[in-house]
């Protein structure tokens, strides 16, 4: 048996056009209009996540919802990427280190036109390219295969060093979970990033304060997380990870002083659906039919 998929995913031109139009609208919008557009796109992603997880009867809904606004802002405001040329040489790189939140990433990529949103219904179905964790060779727009935790930051550091060696101005944005920071490989990479002065690298921590089994601070505490980044030689800021203005600013502002940039995005796991928000059991619980209905009613 060889690893294979039913079909190849390809750029969706009409969807890409819609995405480009939204980006252009945001570029000239006032903050309130911008927030409305971003909210609309994020809500569509959250609704898509509900449908995907409902159909697959598995997934990671809590983390999908905490990272959705970060993903939406990154792709509509910050990243210089082209869904028609996902491997273009001079692109920005985006890496979702918390690969278990693939449903949110796939929805974001599909709504940007990297592939047809119609494919989202195959999520985790037999031979679907949309595995439970993202695969760069099957899903356009995915830079590296994640799933095991603590892998994204070292790869992002390598990509940022590579961009500097080639004299490119491209940036690398990597999103990690907060529980994921318990993996030591991240801290190896944080040191390397500072050593190499990677001011083209931004690490966004999806700080929802919950991990699979309990609260992060009750498991292996991370605070004071900002002090830790600062001690490692990073520029660090804390933002509200659901505030589009703060996200847009943090994800587009260049890091100064030859230092890499850490954005601690304080988020709510399960954001957007009342009965899922900030509850540990919704790490990978699957909603019932009634709960799906209620979730979709709230996500407007």
């Amino acid at each position: 048996m060889t690893e294979q998929s039913a079909h190849q995913l390809r750029t969706a031109p009409a969807q890409r056009a819609e995405w480009l139009a939204a980006r252009q609208a945001i570029a000239v919008a006032d903050p309130s209009e911008r927030d409305q557009i971003l909210h609309r796109w994020a809500t569509r992603t959250r609704r898509s996540v509900v449908s995907m997880i409902d159909a697959a009867r598995q997934g990671h809904i809590g983390g999908d919802f905490s990272v959705t606004d970060i993903l939406t802002t990154a792709y509509l405001v910050a990243l210089d990427v082209d869904p028609a040329q996902p491997r273009a040489e001079h692109r920005d790189r985006f890496i979702l280190s918390k690969g278990h939140c693939a449903a949110a990433l796939y929805s974001t990529l599909a709504f940007a036109g990297f592939f047809d949103p119609g494919e989202l219904s195959t999520f985790m179905k037999p031979l679907s390219p949309l595995n439970g964790h993202p695969n760069r060779n099957k899903v356009p727009g995915v830079e590296t295969n994640t799933g095991p935790l603590g892998h994204g930051v070292p790869v992002a550091v390598g990509a940022a060093i590579g961009a500097k060696l080639k004299g490119e101005s491209g940036r690398v944005i990597v999103v990690t979970g907060d529980g994921e920071l318990q993996e030591g490989s991240n801290w190896e990479a944080f040191m390397t990033a500072a050593q190499y002065g990677l001011d083209n690298l931004t690490v966004v921590v999806d700080r929802n304060r919950l991990q699979q089994g309990a609260r992060t601070e009750e498991t292996n505490h991370l605070d004071p997380l900002d002090d830790k980044f600062a001690a490692f030689g990073w520029n660090v800021e804390q933002i509200d990870g659901h505030h589009y203005g703060q996200l847009a600013d943090a994800l587009t502002r260049p890091s100064g002083g030859g230092r890499p940039h850490a954005v601690i995005a304080n988020t709510v796991k399960g954001k957007g659906v009342s009965f899922i928000e900030d509850r540990v059991e919704w790490h990978h619980k699957v909603p019932s039919a009634e709960q799906v209905k209620q979730a979709l009613e709230e996500l407007v």
Binding site: E89, R93, E143, T144, G150, H151, V153, P154, V155, A156, V157, G158, A159, A160, I161, G162, A163, L165, K166, V172, G184, S185, E188, A189, M191, T192, Q195, Y196
Partner: peptide, 26 residues
């Protein structure tokens, strides 16, 4: 000197950095 990336005693980082460099076309 610029093309020797010494990450220190950090093998997981080392391999991940290698993957990132390959992603960047090196």
């Amino acid at each position: 000197p610029d093309r020797l990336i010494n990450v220190g005693i950090a093998e997981q980082d080392m391999v991940g950095v290698g993957a990132g460099l390959a992603n960047a076309g090196m």
